[in-house]
């Protein structure tokens, strides 16, 4: 089947993926856009995600979780229409500066290299409607587990 005749898009698959991940739903993540090249994910500011009670800045862990989820979906968009399970091998986040209190954040994840068993991903995060200076950057690797139609991992 060619891509144009498929009954679902990359955005559909990403939304379905996200909805199945309980922690990402609880964080309030939303897929903004999903193309072959990149995925954009948004996380609204929320007072229960604050890491520093004195400044109201969102916790780095919440930002990390968003970037990790977005990285996985960037691979989904590369392997589309095949869906694979992609556990994270390693992930490094640099927190360049703090996002402002009350500001939603948006990240863009790209899978810039796909090998038989490993996917290489980069992620950049900004404040929504902020200036163009990123608040965080990340580099990650994921391993590719192929699944059959029943959703079982194959080739292990």
């Amino acid at each position: 089947m060619t891509e144009k005749t498929l009954p679902y898009t990359r955005l559909d698959i990403c939304n379905r993926f996200l909805e199945s991940v309980r922690h990402s739903v609880v964080l309030g993540l939303e897929v903004v856009s999903a193309t072959e090249e990149c995925v954009r994910v948004r996380m609204p500011w929320r007072d229960d995600l604050v890491g520093n009670p004195e400044t109201g800045v969102m916790h780095g862990g919440a930002i990390f979780a968003m970037m990790d989820q977005a990285g996985g979906m960037a691979i989904t968009c590369r392997t589309f229409p095949t869906f694979e399970i992609t556990p994270t091998i390693d992930f490094r986040v640099d927190h360049l500066r703090s996002p402002g209190k009350g500001r939603a954040v948006v990240c863009e994840a790209r899978c810039y290299r796909l090998t038989t068993h490993v996917a290489f991903v980069s992620v950049t995060t900004w404040e929504e409607e902020g200036d163009d200076e990123p608040i965080a950057t990340g580099l990650a690797t994921y391993t590719r587990l192929k699944i059959d139609k029943a959703g079982t991992v194959v080739g292990q």
Binding site: S20, V21, R22, H23, S24, V26, H59, G60, G61, A62, F64, A65, M66, M67, D68, Q69, I85, P87, T88, F91, G151
Partner: peptide, 18 residues
């Protein structure tokens, strides 16, 4: 709230990192 993959079920890597 910290579950990632619900079918396994496994914890979300992001929650463990946080």
């Amino acid at each position: 709230n910290v579950v990632g993959n619900p079918t396994l079920p496994a914890l979300h890597g992001g929650a463990v990192a946080g």
